[in-house]
Amino acid sequence: MNAVNICFLGSSYIGAVYSAYRGKVESGEKAWSIDFYGHSNGGFSNVDIINGHISNVRFKSNESRPVNAYDALVIYADLPSPHDVLKATASASQAGCSQQVVGQVASDLIRSSNAFRLAQAFRSQTGKPVLMLSGNVVSVTNTKMDDLRLFEILDLFYANLDEHIYVPFPRHMFDHVNRPLKEFYKDSILLTGDRAGADAAGHDNHHMNERGGREILTAVEQCLEQLFVCRTQAA
């Protein structure tokens, strides 16, 4: 399993995941080989793949490697959350738009993210799989959504991400109306994997803590296991 190299790219949200990963490695647990690359959300739109390398990032957990050295890319950045898509599509529906237009709103929202553009670039340059997570889910605390609606919205992600794999947040990170539970974002972690200090007031409202990061890491690892086991079997 350790022979598989993963590129984990994202905005400041990856800090919690990196922290969880670092803890796992330090404690001697079995872990995938993951390089983390990140840039805070404001600058993520400039992140690119230039000359075969992830470029314009502010944080790297290791020395940069060419993208074709990786077996898969995980992007956890500016892809909209199911809550964002729900709000946009509900607004279009209320404005009386046709079903076709409402569907297009969801599609445009999902596909206009830099995460999607980078996924397309990575896939076309390497032919390797891309896993994608929605970005700022934990900060969405005022949008209620029943499970049926959530599944409908998740379908929109599956339909619009082409061949990329969408990794939904684990259901137990949310309450009964799919609002994120506070226990996953109190005492949040910065881009670098360090705990936010007093100088980052308000950070807790938008970022996860290490516990949340562990949940995301586990969800990604489970997906990677399925992906690479399936590939081995197919081979």
Binding site: A88, T89, S91, V101, V102, Q104, V105, D108, L109, S112
Partner: peptide
């Protein structure tokens, strides 16, 4: 509607 790209 908000969210629709210029092309759409």
């Amino acid at each position: 509607p908000r969210g629709l790209s210029p092309e759409s």
